[in-house]
Design a protein around this nucleic acid. Sequence first.
RNA 1: CGCGGGGUGGAGCAGUGGUAGCUUGUCGGGCUCAUAACCCGAAGGUCGCAGGUUCGAGUCCUGCCCCCGCUACCA
Length: 541
Amino acid sequence: MTRKILVTSALPYANGSIHLGHLVEHIQTDIFVRFQRLMGNQCYYMCADDAHGTAIMLSAEKSKQKPEDYIYNIRKEHIQDFKAFNISHDHYYSTHSEENRILSEEIYLKAKQSGAITTKEIKQYYCEQTNLFLSDRFIKGRCPKCHEEDQYGDACEKCFHTYDATELKEPYSVYSGKKPVIKNSIHYFFKLSNFKDIINNWLQEGHVTDPVKNKLQEWLDVGLKDWDISRDAPYFGFRIPEETNKYFYVWLDAPIGYISTTKNWCDTTKKESFERIWKSKEYEIHHFIGKDILYFHTLFWPALLHVGGYQLPQKVNVHGFLTVNNEKMSKSRGTFILAKSYLKKLNPEFLRYYYASKLTSAIDDLDFSTKDFTNKINSDVLGKVINICSRLSAIIHKYGEGNISTIPSGAKNMLESIRSHRKKIENFYETLEFSKAMKEIMICADIANQFIDSEAPWSVAKSDTKYAIEICTAGINACRYIMIYLKPVLPNIVEGVEALLNNAPYKWNDLDTTIETQSIKTYHHLASRITLEEVEHIINM
RNA sequence: CGCGGGGUGGAGCAGUGGUAGCUUGUCGGGCUCAUAACCCGAAGGUCGCAGGUUCGAGUCCUGCCCCCGCUACCA
């Protein structure tokens, strides 16, 4: 049965470049997507830039651009970076779009109609220098409890006390450094508690892993608070319909970007009906997100979807953060790596493999260790896998004029044992246990190398060329299976193998077949070894 | 007593009651087809500490110690 799946990665914020952290998520998602397609499932991958909010407005101002131009350029750069890493988005759109405005308004108005929107007058700090209301993150001061300096408006990082921004001592605006004034403003709230049952039922249905479910259960038990979804002008975003000078908070229209991106893609390509994807149960919706935005995707998002008349997600997959050499990735620590810096020195396929070899379905953080990376790539990708291609094709061209023959009966066991890992690997890809999948595949590569070594076709060739080529034919078939296994992770390298072996693009079902009596091309390096120095060079470039 | 995650051979990890395992690194050997790669073998751990449950604990319970996240540019 062919499954129909729509997959998304969280929308990168259009206020900075893509870095190796973003790529954890996009590579994880892409491996899943490519695996589904390889299996013959209908799988579309949607993403977009999250283009609204105060931060973007201010960054645009700072660079003396209109926000529209600013986000246009960032998006262009994001698309380029993702493409370089072979991330196979079917569409990469923007939340600053007509479709997104219309859908956001629609969903909001439905929520309003259902009685889920309410207003409250709130007291908020206001910076008179910049004419901006200051959210918690944009105001600092002294903690009211322990008096620690330079604390944000929501909680103290020293004593963990949480408070209201207005309780801060000696507050100042992070924009101007000046003391802000308190101003009243009407804000619009989404009554999340109206959807408690919807969320709770959804949560019980196995759409998230157990640890995630436990975390969410905690939040539910504490009680669902109303969600502030409005911001005052000036703001870069969508105006709230039927109101003046009120804008949707960026987190309201951001996830709706998943839907509007699909809508734009459906309208443009006519490949599928938008309603069928988002409103029928024919499609499974799978979201991939980082642990920081779990709240939005598992509480607000199901509620918004429900009130908007859309189907709720089948899966919300949550991953951890990236650390670099076991430190938090940060500019000040000197552990920040941009996608662009990586690309200047290293093969993007290597990062895909490295992440795959470390990714699990858990929320654990993932470490990019320069030493470990170098070892793993040289040893697994080059030494174990690509080396099989390289050593066999050399013999085939030296002794067999570039033609493979038939698989000898003595090699059937070896091929069968490689094929016997198929179901396990399939299952590991499906359940996002990529590290386990890579381990299985490396076992297969070991089997192939051991076989080649024990049969020693290079010495057999001296007395029995025909049999030597048969051994190599078996070896090539082993190699081919391993490449099919790896295709979701290493699309480029595998494409090179398909070309080398004069084969059509592999599907998962090609694990049922063998190749015999045909020519193969001469081998050229599919990838090159790396040194620790090269890898270390990409940090803080 | 704020909450959560974790401490297993040099490094990175697997292992939820029954002879401690994998990858890498180190050392020795083999092969010479291959990108100093591949194959075989060896050394290396009282599984953070202390108690307890059990015929038996890395695995369960209790206490303690240590590290990390919950907080910036960030996902």
